[in-house]
């Protein structure tokens, strides 16, 4: 298990835990990021935000926010 911010590009991952609460957790949920959903990092240039693929859509997510999303390889 590791944070999404540590993931390598183009690897299929599964979300294990989302350490966000309240409104932002809701927002992530409705955009497709929630426990047990699949995710793939498209771009992970340090520093800066990440680009991820979730259910076929591309999302930009801040690095700080990605650090609170735990994933594991499939």
């Amino acid at each position: 298990m590791m944070s999404l911010a540590m993931a390598t590009e183009n690897e299929n991952l599964k979300i294990v835990q989302v350490w966000h609460g309240g409104k932002f957790q809701k927002r992530l949920q409705e955009m497709g990021i929630y426990k047990d959903s699949q995710i793939k990092v498209i771009k992970n240039d340090i520093p800066g935000p990440l680009i991820v693929d979730v259910k076929g859509s591309r999302l930009i997510i801040g690095r700080g926010q990605a650090q609170k999303i735990m994933v594991e390889g499939e």
Binding site: M31, L59, I60, I61
Partner: peptide, 11 residues
């Protein structure tokens, strides 16, 4: 805290 950042990247 800075507002969390997530947005869609449309094709």
């Amino acid at each position: 805290m800075s507002a969390p950042f997530v947005m869609e990247l449309p094709p």
